[in-house]
Nucleic acid binder design. Structure first.
Lengths: 208, 208
DNA sequence: TGTACATCAGTGAACGCGCGTTCACTGATGTAC
DNA sequence: TGTACATCAGTGAACGCGCGTTCACTGATGTAC
């Protein structure tokens, strides 16, 4: 594992993104002003514009970073799961357990999904940010769809199973679970939703 | 069924709420200005403030109306389903089918859930709006929990079933499905998620 | 039926503050010769 | 090793526009006597 040392400027940029992300998940993008970001980051307005061309550029960088981190996280979990079982179904079920456990271990609950946040304010963003957001969901879909196809080969499901919808359901349950957890201020709700999804997958592929 | 005739002022108020809701679901609450709302409604700023004390009051009225309409809609669907079957499981499955069909019939897809939108900008709102938002989710939970309890009495599920999570899963799948549909611009994704939830409920209560 | 008054559903002008963005500039660090 | 220049990571001041809110006022409709 390589740990790149950040230069001074990169560290500031990352700090700006951290602060902006917290704020945006709490108040929305339009509700978050550059003034409050720079105040918390301890820099000036112009310092901000050294790192980002404009506010939309901040939005894009934030989303890109979120997607990249998710990619790293999920590849890691899938890899762990694959090491624990060769069977595609068992491996997938292990993955979902690891995912649920990880969400349980966040003391303040999941801070929120940037993709979901952006979807509810997409008219604020340029076309490329919207496209990037959609791409994030497509990546999830393909990742899960791929796993489910391999499971279906070995454990033939009933004919009417909508595998595409089952793949998308992972995103849906995660995003829905985050909303539940945030709204009701109960961090346990998200991991429990993931475990429901897991139970469904288990049932749907178990021989009748 | 009683149809109240709206007075002139009430009609304007409803129109403001309609316009505001579309805008808020597209751009977020902070991203929606009173200026654009009044321009589209064809009134002046002061006209707006005759109907709402301030912007937060608009947020509250919008949420309250959304919750009330949802209540009417779901009571109706449950009633329809109950008329088609006395069995709690069958009735619930019919309800879910009706719900999915209704979502399918929206030509441009579901416009978005105010509750989910507010969750991702809750620091913008006063305490009472946040409480109302949480209450909306609690109402769903209780409604579904109640149905599921009655089903579980007649169709004993396995011991480890998390009925609370299964009840919440209806909201999660609906909110997650809306996000999928909106982000990927595919109205079919939401009803298909609801049908996945239906398939899970069916499986989980069918004797092993 | 006429008149006085109250309420409804707004108008019009002004308010000050906060917003995102621009511009010319700068001190510290890195690189070439 | 010294010097010239370039790049990095910002500063400080100003910009105009759009924002939510306030205030005094008004014409049309409804109600009481």
């Amino acid at each position: 594992m390589t740990v790149r040392v950040l230069s001074k400027g990169e560290a500031t940029r990352e700090r700006i993104l951290d602060i902006a992300q917290d704020a945006v998940l709490a108040k929305g993008f339009a509700g978050t002003s550059l003034d409050e970001i720079i105040a918390e980051a301890g820099i000036t307005k112009s310092g901000f514009f050294y790192h980002f061309r404009d506010k939309n550029d901040l939005a894009k960088a934030m989303l890109q970073r979120y997607l990249d981190r998710e990619e790293v996280l999920f590849s890691g979990l899938f890899k762990q799961a694959d090491e624990l079982s060769e069977d595609p179904l068992h491996s997938f079920l292990i993955f979902l357990k690891l995912f649920a456990d990880l969400m349980s271990d966040m003391p303040n609950g999941h801070p929120g999904c940037i993709v979901a946040s952006y979807v509810y304010q997409d008219h604020l963003f340029s076309q490329d940010v919207r496209a990037l957001n959609a791409e994030g969901l497509i990546v999830w879909r393909n990742r899960f769809r791929d796993r489910l196809d391999r499971i279906a080969e070995r454990y033939p499901p009933r004919a009417d199973l909508d595998i595409d919808a089952l793949a998308d359901m992972a995103s849906a349950v995660a995003d829905g679970g985050i909303i539940l957890s945030k709204c009701l201020r109960d961090p346990s709700l998200l991991p429990r939703q993931i475990l429901q999804y897991r139970a469904y997958v288990k049932l749907v592929f178990s021989p009748a």
